[in-house]
Amino acid sequence: MSSAQQQKRIRVLVAKPGLDGHDRGAKVIARALRDAGMEVIYTGIRQTPEAIVSVAVQEDVDVVALSILSGAHLELFPIIMEGLKEAGMSDTLVIAGGIIPEDDVPMVKQMGVAEVFGPGTFTADIIDCIRKRLGS
């Protein structure tokens, strides 16, 4: 692969904020995105919003994919979105998945999360969403 091609690879941070350890979904998605040719950084479980922002900055990612099943999304997502903004990364595509009640989805989108994917989502749909939104 030439360096020009390498530069085009989409960089994704798959991150798990909150204290829950349910990482099946995050790991399946990390692997599917990698198989789709993206570069994937996975944080592991129980990451603070601050730690997630800091990895996103360090790794200069194009996408932050948040997986949370603990129910703390309404409290933790705003801190992450604010942190990205402060770090000058408000253009970063942020998507989310996990156990998120439908009633909360509009609020989550209001925060700037582009898309919310619940249980039963196909990895192919997430890959499509990322490619479309990044225009690649």
Binding site: L19, R46, E75
Partner: peptide, 22 residues
């Protein structure tokens, strides 16, 4: 709830947003 499971009191910074949730 997860803070009890991981040994944090409800006023611990890592417990934010998690109190009484799971």
């Amino acid at each position: 709830h997860l803070p009890t499971q991981i040994g944090y009191d409800s006023d611990h910074p890592l417990a934010r947003g998690e109190v009484g949730k799971a």
